[in-house]
């Protein structure tokens, strides 16, 4: 799709990439492994411009009607 920045769309929350260290902290905080996180496809159009590879963790800051903003994490997968 040409010339359309979908990141500005009201339905698309802010996506950002976590650093290696942040991933480590996240996994320790919740005592989980990467496989326990929800997934996002490598081809997902919301992370097109983040130059991610499989295994990265995406932090999503959602607008929530109940909490104002809520933070969600997804791990990038190939499939």
């Amino acid at each position: 799709m040409k010339n359309i920045d979908i990141r500005k769309h009201i339905l698309v929350p802010e996506h950002s990439k976590l650093t290696k260290q942040e991933i480590q902290e996240l996994l320790e905080k919740y005592n989980i492994t990467l496989n326990d996180l929800p997934k996002i496809l490598l081809t997902d159009s919301a992370i097109e411009k983040l130059s991610v590879k499989s295994g990265d963790v995406i932090k999503i800051i959602r607008n929530s009607p109940t909490a104002g903003t809520s933070i969600y994490y997804r791990v990038v997968t190939n499939e």
């Binding site: 339905l11 698309v12 929350p13 992370i47």
Partner: peptide, 11 residues
Amino acid sequence: SILGVEAARQV
């Protein structure tokens, strides 16, 4: 497919 899985969740 156009706006990604997070947008789909919202929809």
